[in-house]
Nucleic acid binder design. Structure first.
Length: 473
DNA sequence: CCTGGAGTTGTCCTA
DNA sequence: TTAGGACAACTCCAG
């Protein structure tokens, strides 16, 4: 009986897994393998590492039910595979395609020497499918969204395939390392079961208020599925299917509109994966070349204040502490904090991108880079430069109760709502009555937002003309 | 090739 | 109190 290797990367699931399905269709003797790549493990990303380890432990437990085990090996993937394929006498390796530059380079090299078969599964449509008639990739979200929705969905015709997919079951003879045990993240239990529970609960009702509540920092209105999508504990197909089902079943127009808004967020994920695939250079610098010469200030003290949640703007600091403490940040808070770093402090967006990657449990190069470049106005689909978030107004609008700030900044928890987003507006005696002295218990604002707009517009004025580089740009 | 409509997420001032 | 327009100019994209 021939053996094939199922090489798991960011598809840590048995359900709706095209790479596994392909392996199963080739053989009944399957070796599920995860390789710890020291290059990737070297990145400081504790939240993602512990999520990953827990996910692998849970996958291993699931495999046991089918008489199989997960094989775990640390090493350079090419060398690990080269030696393992001989040891177990495997005839092929199946893996889900990953479109990040590092993964593509790695896989290309391996495919030169070994029978590696990449199967698409990361998104609903592989990058290169949702493109303009000219064949060029979209660089604006809305046309991409329209084209994406205009294509027939591969997922809809395959709804009842899950059971058939998982059997026949893998059999292995592993010589496997132990999975490291790390402190797990209390907010995100890393199992496919949990991912599906969350999805089911979300599309049952919160999805119908999603558009109205998703921006509220003080209300739980989002799906909290990002880490599961990031590591593939749930598939893009299953998620999109559930969204489309919810849209179909919407009881009224308003509910439908709300559910549609969530599907659009899933399409953003596909958009940025496509952007990174077609323009891998966005990891090295701004997509807009004419904006690579912005005169940043890059004051180390400003960055530290931002990083540690000590800018003196409560909504910014609350977001940054939520990130530090939980590995996750509300999307609205990501925008507010990112805008503050780039447009108020004039620190390079790359600094913020790196800090987010270091701390986010759902950190993904495509979405993270896309989001930072978008906020900075230097990416695809650039926002007008004069759109500068006012951290006080954003706080008052999206955290009207102040509870988001109170949760993450306990030193301000007694402040009345009227001043919770602008404590410096309260007189000293008033603050004292709540036990607060600015500069002692909580910082004064590091910059005066009302004056930064001019500074930012001047810095962004590089004087460089926009350049058309080649056929697709 | 030309044309015209449109472009995730905002802020601030005025009437 | 609130609604509407200015804030710029340019690229993207479909017809």
């Amino acid at each position: 009986m021939k053996t094939v290797i199922w090489w798991i990367r960011r598809d840590i699931r048995l359900q709706d897994n095209p790479a596994l399905q392909e392996a199963v269709s080739q053989s009944t003797n399957i070796l599920p393998l995860y390789i710890f790549d020291p290059k990737l493990l070297a990145h400081k990303a504790e939240q993602r590492q512990s999520f990953l380890f827990e996910a692998l432990r849970n996958l291993d437990a699931e495999l046991k039910k089918y008489g199989s085990r997960l094989t775990l090996i640390t090493g350079n993937p090419r060398e690990v595979l080269k030696s393992l394929i001989v040891t177990v006498g495997a005839e092929a390796i199946f893996a889900e395609a990953d479109y990040s530059p590092y993964a593509r380079h790695r896989d290309q090299k391996i495919a030169l020497e070994l029978p590696l078969w990449l199967v698409h599964g990361l998104t609903v449509f592989p990058p290169g499918v949702v493109v303009k008639n000219s064949g060029c990739p979209y660089t604006i979200y809305t046309p991409f969204n329209r084209a994406w929705k205009g294509l027939p969905h591969p997922s809809l015709s395959q709804n009842h395939k899950h059971a058939a997919r998982i059997s026949p079951l893998p059999v292995t003879t592993p010589e496997s390392e132990a999975i490291p045990v790390k402190k797990t993240n209390a907010a995100f239990s890393a199992s496919g079961e949990e991912a599906h529970r969350r999805l089911a609960a979300f599309v049952a009702s919160p999805i119908y208020q999603y558009e109205d509540l998703r921006n509220r920092l003080d209300v739980a209105g989002t799906s909290l599925l990002s880490p599961y999508l990031r590591f593939g504990l749930i598939s893009s197909h299953d998620t999109v299917d559930a969204a489309q089902m919810a849209i179909e079943k919407a009881p009224d127009k308003d509910s439908r509109k709300n559910a549609e808004a969530w599907l659009n967020e899933l399409i953003w994920r596909e958009f940025y994966i496509s952007i990174l695939h077609h323009f891998p250079e966005v990891l090295d610098g701004s997509f807009r070349r004419d904006l690579r010469g912005i005169r940043w200030r890059n004051e180390p003290a400003d960055f530290r204040a931002w990083r540690d949640g000590l800018t003196g703007y409560p909504v910014v600091d609350a977001g940054m502490r939520q990130l530090k403490e939980t590995g996750w940040m509300h999307n609205r808070a990501r925008m507010i904090t990112a805008s503050f770093l780039v447009k108020d402090l004039l620190v390079t967006w790359q600094e913020g991108e790196a800090w987010f990657m270091e701390n986010l449990v759902d950190g993904d190069p495509a979405s993270n880079n896309g989001g930072w470049q978008w906020t900075s106005g230097v990416g695809t689909d650039a926002v007008p430069y004069f759109r500068i978030f006012n951290p006080v107004l954003q706080g008052e609008k999206y955290d009207p109760t102040g509870d988001f700030v109170r949760k993450w900044l306990p030193e301000l928890k007694n402040l009345p709502t009227e001043y919770i987003h602008k404590p410096w507006m309260m007189d000293e005696a008033g603050l004292k009555s709540y036990g607060i002295k600015l500069g002692e218990h909580y910082p004064r604002p590091v910059v005066d937002h009302s004056i930064v707009k001019q500074r930012t517009m001047a810095a962004y004025n590089t004087g460089e003309p926009r350049i058309v580089i080649d056929g697709c740009r």
